[in-house]
Write a protein that binds this DNA or RNA. Structure first.
Lengths: 296, 296
DNA sequence: CGTGTCATTGAGAATGTTCAATAGGTGTGG
DNA sequence: CCACACCTATTGAACATTCTCAATGACACG
């Protein structure tokens, strides 16, 4: 039996009401947590303007009109404290969620109290998948750290997709990358030992954060709790702690003050057998053309 | 360290040349294995006509024209022996693969010799995902048992999608279901003990096979090797064996002669905490209408 | 300075792996 | 029909990994 000691979140996350629409109260409700974290992330890199635009631009060549629309989305961000549930399992979401700042995630609870995180939503990531089909969610969505999020109503989102073929195409490729990432996680959880697993996760985070300018060469802000890491990697948080120490002892990483430095990048990659190709599909970008309509 | 004893497949699978186009030689190359297995599966259920059509019909209402097209695809099946690699990791596939009979899978190898299966392709399942974007595959594809497969050239497949909006829509929902299944597997690998994990897998197989008429109420043909199960569930095959025995000892299942019987379905479901909602999205089927074009 | 959260440590127990051997079943060739 | 080869399933025993429980530090906040 694998009845892990219930982590902090087990009691925190499921209790508050889920957020279906932008809850203005939240901003006032829990102000102490909210003000530092996101700013720290954003200010850590001068280029971090709009991570979503940056990310899509790696897949397709965006037109000025596309960019204007994307910037419009990013303008409407709201702040949420850490560990806030946003959508519950089986909800039928009425809006897409764009992460502007901070870390969010998809997760599931089991009745034994265990939680499994199935995906990280980093700045520039969009939660939207089943929107068009109005399917009940197969997992919950919530913040890990304090976040700035843009909630995009369904109609507005669908409209965007219709008007902006390039963006729609980029989002399809994002979906493919996400599916590939899920398979990579399955491999990680099923076939790698504790240290390898953690190393793999840290490598993935580095590359994903770098793609939006939120990580420098070998360093990034890492505000993830060991308990969250445990729920990510399928281990107890005691074991996460020990594995972290092993990586430190081996001189692979340094982790202090919510900041991770990878000291020996290829050492870590080798340990993890990390092959990043699943993250960067050899995109065949569409070139801007006359058929592109101007912004509405 | 998790350097499992290399299963049989480690040496078998990577060696033969990958199959990019229908290899007629295969049919003659290994005839002994090929002739029984698929027939046994097919004949086990009178309604098993075209599992692909059956599956899509659970998502949308198909028109007679749609059905004719789908039946056309299924007609062109070819046989492949068990444990045949079809596509290698990093390949850019030139055809979709429709499973008509037998079990295939997606998998990855690690350099330590371990293999992780990331998805099962059962009769009625289609491998196609990255086709449109011509991305290198993030994992390999191969048969587990002897299979009958239809290889659909890229152009023909894209044509089908264009001409058949209902089919295209159904396939999008299939993709959503597949993504949900990946997340479920992550949860399974990360958060469940051996017996729970296996139980969950067996429950999923039951429902998926039932959806295409290949399982009766609580029984199905189960031609999977314990070594394959090990690569699926992230455990050693010795442990798979012991966990299987435990489920048998607890009177939950009976497994003999490649046939699995679930003796206490709710016992198994409870153990696995199995919630099948990820497999059956509350579809909103399109009704056939005048806008539907007749078959070409 | 008390409270709460997160990180760290120790020690015993459970789960899962490895290695190695044995058993069962099936098809092949004589 | 039997002996053999091969593949799969099963078993035992030693070992490794990981978990649980419980206690202790470290640090931030009011």
């Amino acid at each position: 039996m694998r009845t892990l000691q219930p982590n902090r979140l087990v009691t925190t996350l499921p209790m508050p009401a889920p957020v279906h629409a932008p809850p203005d109260e939240r901003q006032a409700a829990d102000p102490h947590h909210v003000h530092e974290e996101p700013l720290r992330l954003a200010s850590s890199d001068p280029e971090a303007g709009d991570p979503f635009r940056r990310k899509l631009a790696t897949y397709v060549e965006l037109t000025p009109g596309d960019i204007r629309e994307l910037d419009g989305l990013a303008a409407s961000g709201r702040r949420y404290p850490a560990q806030t549930p946003l959508l519950h399992q089986a909800d039928i979401p009425e809006c897409a969620i764009l992460v502007l700042d901070g870390f969010a995630c998809r997760y599931k609870f089991l009745t034994n109290g265990r939680r499994q995180i199935t995906a990280y939503l980093l700045p520039g990531d969009l939660f939207e998948l089943d929107l068009e089909f109005r399917l009940p969610l197969d997992c919950a969505v919530g913040t890990l750290t304090a976040c700035r999020l843009a909630l995009i109503p369904r109609s507005e989102y669908e409209d965007l997709i219709r008007r902006r073929p390039r963006i729609a195409r980029a989002l399809q490729m994002v979906r493919l990358t996400e599916a590939a990432t899920l398979r990579e996680w399955i491999t990680n959880l099923g076939s790698r030992s504790g240290p390898e697993r953690l190393a793999h996760f840290l490598c993935e985070m580095l590359l994903r954060l770098r793609a939006t300018g939120l990580a420098s060469e070998n360093q990034y802000s890492f505000p993830i709790t060991q308990a969250d890491l445990a729920d990510t990697l399928g281990m107890s948080c005691v074991h996460v702690n020990r594995v972290l120490q092993k990586l430190r002892r081996d001189g692979l990483i340094e982790l202090s003050g919510r900041r991770l430095t990878i000291l020996r990048p290829d050492g870590l990659r080798t340990l993890a057998e990390y092959d990043a190709s699943y993250l960067k599909p050899a995109a065949t970008p569409l070139r801007p053309s006359a058929s592109d309509r101007p912004a509405a």
